[in-house]
Deep mutational scan, measured.
Amino acid sequence: KFNKERVIAIGEIMRLPNLNSLQVVAFINSLRDDPSQSANLLAEAKKLNDAQAP
């Protein structure tokens, strides 16, 4: 279950337009470290993406 959620979360994070490459890598590394947190990490990535919108 967590592996599928992690793959989906990674794909979504990679498509967030307002994150820089270091932020994307940090979120992906966090997902690798704890796949059970996929939903929480994706939500945090989306919040950061929205906050950094031009």
Rank of each mutant, 00 (worst) to 15 (best):
K1I: 14
N18K: 02
D50C: 09
F27L: 04
R32P: 04
P54H: 09
V7E: 15
I10S: 03
V7C: 15
L42E: 02
F2T: 12
L19A: 00
L22M: 11
K47A: 10
S21I: 12
N40A: 09
N29W: 09
N29D: 05
L41P: 00
L16F: 04
N29M: 14
S38V: 14
F27E: 00
L19D: 00
L31Q: 00
A43F: 09
A39V: 07
A26Q: 10
D50S: 07
L16Q: 02
E5I: 10
F27M: 04
L41N: 02
A26P: 01
P17C: 11
N40K: 14
L16R: 00
N3A: 06
V24W: 03
A39K: 14
G11K: 12
S36H: 08
P54K: 08
N20V: 06
A45K: 00
A45S: 02
V24Y: 03
Q52P: 02
L19M: 02
L41I: 11
L19P: 00
L31P: 00
A43K: 10
Q37T: 06
R6L: 15
I13Q: 01
V24F: 04
D34Q: 06
F27D: 00
V7W: 15
N40E: 08
F27P: 00
S21D: 05
A43D: 10
L19W: 00
N40G: 07
R6S: 15
I8Y: 11
N20R: 12
L19V: 01
D33R: 13
L19S: 00
L48W: 05
S38A: 11
L22T: 11
L48V: 07
Q52Y: 05
R15Y: 04
L16Y: 03
L19T: 00
A45T: 00
Q52K: 03
N40W: 14
A51E: 09
L48C: 04
L41K: 09
R6D: 15
V25P: 01
N49V: 02
P35G: 08
A9S: 03
L16P: 00
E5L: 13
A9R: 03
Q23M: 04
A39M: 14
R32G: 12
P35M: 11
R6Y: 15
L48R: 04
L42M: 05
L41S: 03
V25W: 14
R6K: 11
K46F: 09
L22Q: 13
E12S: 09
E44V: 12
I28V: 05
I10V: 06
L19N: 00
R32D: 15
P17K: 13
R32K: 12
Q23G: 01
I28E: 02
A43Q: 08
K4G: 09
Q23V: 02
D33H: 12
L48Q: 04
A43W: 10
R6A: 15
S38F: 14
A51Q: 09
E44P: 01
I10C: 10
I8A: 07
Q37L: 10
L19K: 00
Q52E: 03
P54R: 08
I10R: 03
A45D: 00
M14P: 01
R32S: 13
V7K: 14
S30E: 07
A45G: 01
L31E: 01
S21W: 14
K1D: 15
R32Q: 13
A9M: 06
N40V: 06
L22H: 12
A51S: 09
N49Y: 01
I10A: 06
P54I: 10
N18T: 01
P17L: 11
N40R: 13
Q37I: 08
Q23A: 02
I10T: 04
L48Y: 04
L42Q: 02
Q52L: 05
S36K: 06
N20W: 10
N49L: 01
K4N: 07
A51P: 01
A43I: 11
A9G: 02
N29Q: 10
R6V: 15
S38G: 04
A26I: 10
V7A: 14
G11Q: 11
E5V: 06
L31Y: 03
P35F: 11
L16D: 00
L19Q: 00
L22D: 10
I28K: 03
I28Q: 02
A53D: 10
I28C: 06
D33N: 11
R6C: 15
I13R: 01
D50K: 10
A9T: 09
S21T: 14
G11M: 14
S30P: 01
G11E: 10
E12I: 15
S38P: 04
L31N: 00
E5C: 15
G11W: 14
N49Q: 01
Q37D: 06
L42R: 04
L48I: 06
M14F: 05
Q52S: 04
Q23C: 03
I13D: 00
I28S: 02
A43Y: 14
A53T: 10
N3Q: 10
V7S: 07
A51V: 09
S30M: 13
L22F: 11
N49K: 01
K46N: 05
P35I: 07
V7N: 08
N18L: 02
N3S: 04
D33W: 10
V7Y: 14
A51I: 10
A53C: 07
F27T: 00
S30W: 12
P35E: 05
V24D: 00
N49W: 01
P35Q: 05
A53W: 05
I13F: 03
L42N: 01
L19E: 00
R15A: 07
A51T: 08
L19R: 00
N18R: 03
K1T: 09
V24M: 06
A51W: 10
E12L: 15
A39I: 11
S38D: 04
L41W: 07
V7P: 02
Q52C: 12
K1V: 05
A39G: 10
L42S: 03
I13M: 04
R15G: 05
E44R: 14
P17E: 05
L19F: 02
I13K: 00
P54Q: 10
D33P: 02
S21K: 10
F27Q: 00
A9Y: 09
A53F: 07
F2W: 06
L22G: 09
N49I: 02
A45Y: 05
S38M: 15
V25A: 11
M14H: 04
A51R: 12
P17T: 07
D50G: 08
A45V: 02
G11P: 02
I8W: 11
F2Q: 13
D33E: 09
L31H: 01
M14Q: 05
K47F: 07
N20Y: 11
D33K: 13
N3V: 05
P17W: 07
N3C: 15
I8S: 04
M14E: 03
K47M: 08
K4Q: 14
E5H: 06
S21M: 10
R32L: 14
K46V: 06
L31M: 05
D50M: 12
Q23K: 01
I10N: 02
E12V: 14
S36E: 09
Q37N: 08
D33Q: 08
D50V: 10
E12K: 14
Q23F: 02
S38R: 06
N3H: 13
V7R: 15
V7H: 07
A51F: 09
S36I: 06
S36P: 03
S21R: 13
Q23L: 03
N20E: 04
K47R: 11
F2C: 15
E12H: 10
I8C: 12
N18E: 01
F27R: 00
I13N: 00
N29K: 11
F2N: 13
E44Y: 14
V25L: 13
E5Q: 09
A51D: 07
D34R: 06
S38E: 03
I28N: 02
N49G: 01
I13S: 00
S30L: 14
L48S: 02
L48A: 05
S36A: 11
L41F: 08
Q37G: 08
N40I: 11
P54V: 10
E12C: 14
R32E: 14
D50A: 12
A51H: 07
